[in-house]
Nucleic acid binder design. Structure first.
Lengths: 296, 296
DNA sequence: ATGGTCCGATACCAATTTTGGATCAAATGG
DNA sequence: CCATTTGATCCAAAATTGGTATCGGACCAT
């Protein structure tokens, strides 16, 4: 097969229509240029140039090949450029896992910031629960996880990007909706909707801890995994619930969200996690963006 | 800049993820392969492969470059293939000039035959009068002319593809429309529509010769260049005319076309013309098709 | 632990290819 | 008809490429 140097030679000759000038442009002398063209023609099995004694013309095959040759050269350059940009972390793609809850409050800001600062970067977002994210991180199927504790120490790096309180969600017409804050004990007296112990283990455990510390034992009427499902059930008047602050972003009609009165609770945390041996050059760049966002 | 051989090396290694196997696939040994990859990486200024001691992985830049590399290789192959096809006269493009009249009868068949036998060939058709075609042939702006005599001998090759009689065109209701054939003298007695002496010089001269040989002198009521204009005027009842047989293809309503009774006329000829130094490989191929068509 | 094995990198050598100066051959133009 | 232009050819020198032998690190089985 032919080589790119031969393609460059051919393009130069085809553009100059003169071996001498083309050779000068290529910083070489005329004889090797002639030979390279001959070799190219032999490889292709096609005459590309019609050498008249006073003029060089392109044959139709040469004309056709010239078009393709220019394309090939352009493509090689852009391939090299792209590879460099990817290596610098200015282009490429990252797979990001995120929990459903983070899609309300943190993910949109992160995506917006990346879009702005890294316009050529493709973010591939995959919603999944924290446990799956850890598994996929280990398998290298996602580069970044946005997930809830606990995080095993095995080869993972992470930092916290969000810590939010849980706030009470009660039906709009409910008697507790009148106050600006709600006592945890009042809430625990109502029929309580909470998180599924497996799919939403983190929130489930968080609430269990919260109530047991306050020596309360609410009546659980429903287990659900998704915040919007919980809010929908609250809206329907089935009971009350505790949801992360991020739920305010949802603007759920018919549901009043009120902070808790005596707020000693441990915050619900969201972490930015990656494998420390992940060599995606975008990782440090996006981590920096994520950190900035978390600090603000 | 890098070379295609290096790209091929890289693709092989990226696909095998193993230098030894890749080298075998490339019919070479492992050390030079390693070196080529290193050179490629140095040229790009980017690490493409992560060499672990037991496994080779692609870096993100390598992943990106692999995609582009495959594209480049595919493009080079198709470029070579296309050049060969063009040289063989199986692909490419030809500029063809044709007269308005030939577009009724000969051009459609020629185009259809080319489409069928040379599906990848682009025919660029340009309607122009014979004189312009000769000029453009000289300038190399068209490869083929389909035109009327006279043809100068200067560096042109040609053969006849069509010789058609002139037939009478009379309004459908006209008294002459009743007969199956029409005498030239009867026609000459009617108001006569004929060809513009410049734009349609060939037909003009042909008719002048025809009438003068028959010692007739019709009354010309209108000069027109285009056959369909002439037929429209005939249809409107302005007069009668003589048009080439090809006019039958037009299926002009309200116009009766009748052959002449004593048909000693010189036929209207159409020629396939090209510059003998035109090196478009499609030329002999299309000329052969055109000749076949003319013979049939 | 430890020797064996796998795998890519390195060193060095031989063969091929490429390069560029000199020269040639053909054709144009004064 | 000769000077000039232009691509092709020849040849010696230089560079590149590919191969063999070997190294060094990591994993594995014993």
């Amino acid at each position: 097969m032919f080589e790119l140097s031969q393609v460059r030679c051919f393009v130069a000759v085809a553009e100059e229509l003169h071996f001498g000038r083309a050779a000068a442009r290529l910083n070489m002398t005329q004889p090797p240029l002639s030979r390279q063209i001959q070799i190219l023609e032999r490889i292709l099995g096609v005459k590309l140039l019609q050498r008249g004694n006073r003029l060089v013309r392109l044959t139709p095959a040469g004309q056709s090949f010239l078009t393709e040759a220019r394309l090939i050269l352009k493509l090689t350059e852009s391939a090299a450029l792209l590879a460099r940009r990817v290596a610098e972390g200015k282009a490429g793609s990252v797979n990001i896992g995120f929990t459903a809850a983070s899609s309300y409050s943190y993910v949109p800001e992160l995506v917006a910031a990346c879009r702005q600062q890294l316009p050529d970067v493709e973010l591939i977002l995959k919603e999944m629960v924290s446990g799956d994210q850890l598994k996929r991180l280990g398998a290298g199927e996602i580069d970044i996880g946005l997930l809830r504790p606990p995080i095993p120490r095995t080869g993972l790096q992470f930092f916290r990007v969000k810590a939010e309180r849980m706030i009470a969600a009660v039906p709009a017409g409910h008697k507790l909706a009148g106050a600006t804050t709600i006592d945890l004990s009042d809430l625990a007296a109502e029929p309580f909707i909470t998180y599924a112990p497996y799919e939403a283990r983190y929130f489930h455990d968080l609430l269990v801890e919260l109530f047991s510390r306050a020596a309360l034992a609410p009546v659980y009427v429903q287990h659900l995994a998704q915040i919007h499902s919980i809010l929908a059930i609250v809206q329907a008047g089935v009971g009350v619930a505790l949801v992360p602050e991020a739920a305010e972003k949802l603007q759920f009609r018919g549901v009043a969200l009120r902070p808790l009165a005596d707020d000693q609770q441990r915050a619900a945390e969201l972490y930015f996690v990656w494998r420390d041996d992940n060599d995606n050059p975008l990782l440090p760049v996006i981590a920096a963006i994520a950190r900035d966002l978390a600090g603000a």
